[in-house]
Design a protein around this nucleic acid. Structure first.
Length: 500
RNA sequence: GGUGUCGUGGUCGAGCGGUAAGGCGCAGCUCUGCAAAAGCUGUUACACUGGUUCAAUUCCAGUCGGCACCUCCA
């Protein structure tokens, strides 16, 4: 087995992946903040890590995949002085904060299910780990990297930077970071401009607050990930992932917190997924250019020409490497939809091909063809081992599609490819499409209820054609097409159908 | 301003020292009662300028342009 290489944001290069404990992988991915619906950009990150999770499992690793739910502490404004997002939304909608959390958590899970992502093995919440966060803040204070001002605990970035490079993850010097930050206001209680809150004193009207050694308050945004990752994966673990936008602040602070608390850097491999863009600009909540998954599935959005299926979107994302930006457009989605259909129909034809009766005969084997198939398939793992290059796997699959279709159509005789090669072809398509890429049939023919009905119409059409009654046969074909069902006259005389 | 990243054909997108995957689109042909599907064939691409090298799209430097982060966002 070739070695898996991962691009490590920390070192800005591809590195051979060696887990801390042979055979086991600990992976932490920053999850959603559940105060509103997830938009498609969020989904891209979670779909990317779903593929990574699935591939690690395919490689035989036992993976503990932790993805948190942020349900407290995330502030509206910058500078640790705005409203808590949950409190604000709760006031706005006259609900308990936990009702907000519950609603959007369920919505998030529903969307993840539609995209066919596997659930993480642990999905901890910030509110469920208040004491762990308080403990960690206490340690950081005891170690001298934080200070308390009137019930709020701040992390002392400049002190920390004297010992460890604060901006290591994004390759920035402290001086440069300070330049880019606005000056402290006169009323600011922080010592340094870059200092961030570990624990925040709650105003009396604040809806979510907990007792702490520093009074009633709530945790800062960054400490939850440090507390929960160390609790479930250890002080040092293998992979930490998230969107690229989190690297500069959130992940930078996580590293600082872990160093200040445990004197270790938490993750050995940092992985960052790139942004989803619309017309070249980043899709984001604040910019208001986000698509909600629901809008996509219904087509109910001013920029969408029509609805698209979740698997179309998933496939669309697979065609681009996770570290590249991906631009969202109707054209791109429609191209993805057609590509997926072609690939999926080839897969189905391959599944239906009966290989049991094949006996290899060296005289009929087309060595070049057989070799080519094997090389293309070997390229699957090779591409995935090269920092999860799903796009290259798909390219190889598409090169195999004509081979599969030609076997089906009779242009390639079964005997020209070795039985073992064909068996591997079936296995690789099944494993990659279903298990690793997580694609599934969405044609809406659950239980095959339509099969019998369509078969009957196919029979009638076949009889009509045999009497040269083309009016009837065309009527059946055209009317079915209007219902979204396409009949296909195959080379071998059979007639198959598919949703159009 | 700082830190990165990207600039590949009609379009979307891989690759990244030895003259360039694949999807979609388009054109022609085969098959077909006609179509569709499928198959085959084709489809004038590596921003610009220097440098290193036997050899650069790929490495280095610079120029131009895009984007992102440095402030809430995956």
């Amino acid at each position: 087995m070739a070695e898996l290489k991962i691009f490590n944001s920390l070192t800005r290069q591809k590195e051979i992946f060696t887990p801390l404990t042979p055979g086991y992988v600990g992976m932490y991915v920053c999850g959603p903040t559940v105060y509103s619906d997830v938009h498609l950009g969020n989904c891209r990150t979670f779909i990317s890590f779903d593929i990574i999770y699935r591939y690690l499992k395919y490689l035989g690793y036992k993976v503990r995949y932790v993805r948190n739910i942020t349900d407290a502490g995330h502030l509206e404004g910058d500078r640790d002085e705005g409203d808590d997002k949950f409190s604000k939304k709760a006031r706005l909608e006259q609900l308990e904060p936990m009702e907000i959390v519950q609603r959007y958590t369920l919505g998030f899970h529903k969307v993840m299910e539609l995209f066919n992502t596997l659930p993480p093995t642990i999905e901890p919440t910030a509110t469920g780990h208040i004491s762990e966060q308080i403990e960690m803040v206490k340690h950081i204070l005891a170690n001298g990297y934080a200070y308390v001002v009137d019930g709020t605990v701040y992390f002392d970035v400049e002190k920390y930077n004297k010992e460890k490079p604060y901006g290591i993850l994004t390759n920035r010097k402290l001086e440069d970071l300070l330049e880019g930050t606005r000056a402290l206001g006169g009323q600011d209680e922080k010592r340094g401009r870059l200092d961030f809150a570990l624990w925040i004193k709650a105003k009396p009207e604040h809806l979510m607050q907990w007792p702490s050694p520093w009074g009633m308050g709530f945790p800062g945004w960054h400490i939850e990930c440090s507390a929960m990752s160390s609790k479930y994966l250890g002080k040092v673990f293998d992979i930490h992932g998230g969107g690229m936008d989190l690297a500069a602040t959130h992940h930078t602070n996580e590293i600082a917190q872990s160093q200040a608390c445990y004197h270790v850097s938490p993750a050995r491999y940092w992985m960052h997924t790139n942004m989803l863009t619309v017309n070249g600009a980043r899709m984001s909540k604040s910019a208001g250019n986000g698509f909600l998954p629901g809008e996509l599935f219904t087509g109910n959005h001013k920029l969408l020409e029509r609805a698209y299926l979740p698997m179309t979107v998933r496939f669309f994302m697979l065609q681009t490497h996770y570290r590249s930006t991906l631009d969202f457009s109707n054209e791109a989605l429609q191209a993805a939809e057609k590509g997926l259909k072609r690939l999926w129909e080839a897969y189905e034809a391959l599944e239906k091909t009966d290989l049991s009766s094949i006996v290899d005969n060296e005289d009929t084997i087309d060595e070049a063809l057989d070799n080519n198939c094997r090389e293309l398939m070997a390229g699957f793992d090779e591409a995935m081992n090269d920092d999860f290059n799903t796009a290259r796997v798909l390219a190889n699959m598409f090169e195999l599609v004509p081979v599969i279709n030609s076997i089906k159509g009779g242009q390639i005789a079964l005997g020209s490819i070795r039985k073992g090669t064909l068996e591997l072809l079936q296995k690789q398509f099944r494993v990659y499409l279903l298990d690793i890429f997580g694609l599934k049939d969405e044609r809406g023919n659950e239980g095959g209820v339509l099969d019998g009905v369509i078969d009957l119409l196919i029979q009638i059409r076949r009889e009509a054609r045999s009497r040269k009654d083309f009016a009837t046969s065309d009527k059946i074909r055209n009317e079915l097409l209007r219902q979204g069902i396409a009949l296909k006259d195959e080379k071998n005389g059979s007639i198959t159908w598919s949703f159009n």
